[in-house]
Design a protein around this nucleic acid. Structure first.
Ligand code: MN
Ligand code: MN
Ligand code: ZN
Ligand code: ZN
Lengths: 134, 134
DNA sequence: ATGTATAGTGATAATCGTTGTCAAATAGAG
DNA sequence: CTCTATTTGACAACGATTATCACTATACAT
């Protein structure tokens, strides 16, 4: 049932290493970062690794309004949480919403809905980007 | 500034009419509905109309995890609100989250973020779909 | 250490929702 | 009705993601 642990490859090491510098980036952006660092790695491999890491909970994934998926290494362990992300630079803070989970369950029940899932994402412009940008 | 009012065409009338039956559907699904009703209408026209209606606030648009955009005619006027949507059939309830907006602004300010936007969507399985489906 | 089975890689093609193009159709003002 | 700017729609193009599949390289057994 629990899938066999993945093999250790230099590509995956390089990806995790790159993720270490933080920030939400698309798979293609992470691939650019890796190539820029001199790593020889295929785009498909980056996609697969990021998806696997997201599934295992080691990275967070968010979908932008334009449909792109952004990934970042998450330090907040396996606890459920949400993000406040800068639309300009990819920086993000982990946040949690005290009463939201309880509220969601209650509202869903009132309407007869089950198997509830929720999406809560905050975006804005961080202080640094607000100072620099137009 | 305010764009000139769009012309009245049979295509747009047909689209608004179809939307009248409710539910969140993708542009392609709405197109299928229209064709099924015997309307001769192009897919590109459906995309354009739905986007225009979404921009003017007459329809709600949500983006699924897979990146598809779903549209539905919204009865909740121009007041800001969110949705509890059935993943199986497209049914949806308008909901509002009492203290969320204030909380979001406050958290953003604490982290030095400005120009805040937020996404809150609830999904589940409605009572009817839960009864019928597996 | 060496061989082997097997999971991982990556260049490339395919997918699919969406957007762009542009000639033909038409709403609506005069 | 006439005229013209807007709208339409068949079709091509786009862009992020996923599938292919021949080729490696890892982990394990010998
Ligand atoms: Mn996180
Ligand atoms: Mn609504
Ligand atoms: Zn920033
Ligand atoms: Zn349902």
């Amino acid at each position: 049932m629990t899938d066999a642990k993945p093999r250790q490859t230099k590509q995956r090491a390089a990806i995790v290493d790159a993720l270490g510098r933080g920030g939400f980036r698309s798979a293609q952006d992470w691939h650019d970062v890796l190539r820029h660092d001199g790593a020889a790695i295929g785009l498909a491999t980056v996609y697969r690794a990021l998806q696997a890491l997201a599934e295992s909970g080691d990275v967070d994934a968010v979908v932008t309004d334009s449909g792109e998926t952004l990934y970042r290494l998450c330090e907040a362990g396996e606890v459920h949480h949400h993000h406040l992300r800068c639309r300009a630079c990819g920086a993000a803070e982990d946040v949690d919403i005290p009463t939201f989970e309880a509220w969601a369950t209650s509202v869903a029940a009132q309407h007869g809905y089950s198997r509830i899932e929720h999406t809560v994402e905050l975006t804005g412009v961080c202080h640094q980007c607000a100072t620099e940008g137009a």
